[in-house]
C-alpha cells in the first residue's frame, strides 16, 4: 500500500538535515582545516601554515596548565558525580508526602544559568561572604579562606560548583534507571536479613551499573568541557596569573578581538576533541569487561 509520495519524507527532513550539515558536519571538517591556517577573527585571508599551530601548542605552557587543570577537574568530579546523585536518587525514589516537591527543588540548580550560579557562588565564597563567615564562626581559621584568589582553591571552588549544579541532573538519570531495578530482589534480600547498606550494594548498584558507566562518561566529558564556572568565578581572568584556565577558556580567548587567532583556537579545539575521547574509550572498555 502506498502510504506517501517519495518526496514527502524529504520535505520533512530537509530543514533539520540542512541545519545538521551547515552547523555540525561542516564545522567539524572546517575545524580541522582551520587548525592548519592562520585565520583571524576579524576576517581577511587565511593562509596555510602547516603544523605550526600544533607545534606552538606543544610549547605553550598555558595549554599544559589547562590540561593539568582538566585532569584534576575530571578526577574529582568523576567519583563525586557518579555516586552522590545515585544516593540522592535512592532518597527521592520512595513515594513519601512532598517527594515531588523535593525532586523539583533538587533539580533547580540544573535549570539556572551557569552565569547566575557562578555569580551567586562568587558572593558565597567572597572573603566577607557567607561561607567564610561560617568557617570563622566555627573557629577553623582566623583569616578568610582565599577561595577565589588562590590558584588551587579557585579550581576546587569551581569543581564544587560543577558538582553542586550536576547533582539534580544525574539524579534524574538515576531515578529513571532505578525504576527498572527489580523490586522482588530487594524484598528477597530484606527477608534474608540484609540491611539498607548491604541491599544498596548488592541489589541497587548492580541493577544500575550500566547507568553508572553512562553517567561516568557524561561527567568526565562535561568536566573536560568546563568553561562558565571558571570564567565567572575568576571574573574572566582565569585566576592568579591565568593559571586557572581550561581548554575551552583558552579557545574563547583566541576566538575574538584584535589579538585573536582562529587557527590556533581550532587546533586547541582538535586537542579538546581528542582529550574527550579518552574517558569515553577507557570507560567503554571497563564497561565491556564488567559485563563479562
Amino acid at each position: 500500500m502506498k502510504t506517501h509520495r517519495w518526496f514527502t519524507p524529504w520535505i520533512l527532513t530537509i530543514p533539520a538535515l540542512a541545519w545538521l550539515l551547515v552547523f555540525s558536519v561542516w564545522p567539524s571538517i572546517n575545524t580541522l582545516r582551520l587548525s592548519f591556517t592562520d585565520a583571524k577573527p576579524l576576517g581577511g585571508t587565511a593562509d596555510f601554515v602547516g603544523v605550526r599551530n600544533y607545534s606552538d601548542m606543544l610549547h605553550d605552557p598555558q595549554v599544559w596548565t589547562a590540561l593539568l587543570n582538566s585532569a584534576v577537574y575530571m578526577a574529582v568530579c568523576l567519583p563525586l558525580l557518579t555516586i552522590l546523585p545515585l544516593l540522592i536518587a535512592v532518597l527521592v525514589e520512595k513515594k513519601l508526602p512532598f517527594i515531588a516537591f523535593f525532586r523539583t527543588a533538587f533539580y533547580v540548580p540544573v535549570i539556572a544559568s551557569a552565569v547566575v550560579v557562578g555569580l551567586m557562588w562568587t558572593w558565597l565564597l567572597d572573603d566577607r561572604g557567607l561561607i567564610n563567615n561560617l568557617v570563622r564562626w566555627l573557629h577553623v581559621v582566623q583569616e578568610p579562606v582565599p577561595f577565589l584568589t588562590d590558584r588551587w582553591l579557585v579550581l576546587i571552588s569551581a569543581i564544587s560548583l560543577t558538582v553542586w549544579k550536576g547533582l539534580g541532573y544525574y539524579m534524574i538519570v538515576y531515578l529513571a534507571a532505578l525504576g527498572n531495578v527489580r523490586k522482588d530482589l530487594h524484598e528477597a534480600a530484606a527477608i534474608d536479613g540484609a540491611g539498607p547498606v548491604r541491599r544498596f550494594l548488592t541489589v541497587t548498584v548492580p541493577g544500575v551499573r550500566g547507568t553508572m558507566f553512562l553517567v561516568a562518561v557524561l561527567v568526565s566529558v562535561s568536566a573536560l568541557r568546563v568553561f562558565s564556572e571558571l570564567f565567572i568565578l575568576t571574573g574572566g581572568k582565569g585566576g592568579p596569573g591565568g593559571k586557572d584556565q581550561s581548554l575551552v577558556m583558552l579557545i574563547q580567548q583566541y576566538a575574538g578581538g584584535f589579538y585573536g587567532d582562529l587557527g590556533y583556537a581550532s587546533s586547541l579545539s582538535v586537542l579538546l576533541f581528542v582529550v574527550t575521547l579518552i574517558p569515553m574509550i577507557v570507560l567503554a572498555r571497563l564497561n565491556n569487561r564488567a559485563e563479562k
Binding site: 502510504t3 506517501h4 517519495w6 514527502t8 519524507p9 524529504w10 520533512l12 527532513t13 533539520a16 538535515l17 545538521l20 552547523f23 555540525s24 558536519v25 561542516w26 564545522p27 567539524s28 572546517n30 575545524t31 582551520l34 585565520a39 577573527p41 566529558v221 573536560l224 568541557r225 568553561f227 575551552v248 579557545i251 576566538a255 582562529l262 583556537a265 581550532s266 579545539s269 582538535v270 579538546l272 576533541f273 574527550t276 569515553m280
Partner: peptide, 30 residues
C-alpha cells in the same frame, strides 16, 4: 515513514552527538 536513506539520515543525527559543542564553536563562528 519508510524511505531510501532513512538509516543514513538517522546515523548522521546520532553521529553528531559524540561531538562536544565547544569543539566546533570556532568553525561555527566562521
Amino acid at each position: 515513514l519508510r524511505f531510501r536513506g532513512r538509516r543514513v539520515v538517522l546515523g548522521l543525527f546520532l553521529g553528531t552527538l559524540v561531538l562536544p559543542g565547544e569543539v566546533t564553536i570556532i568553525a561555527q563562528y566562521v
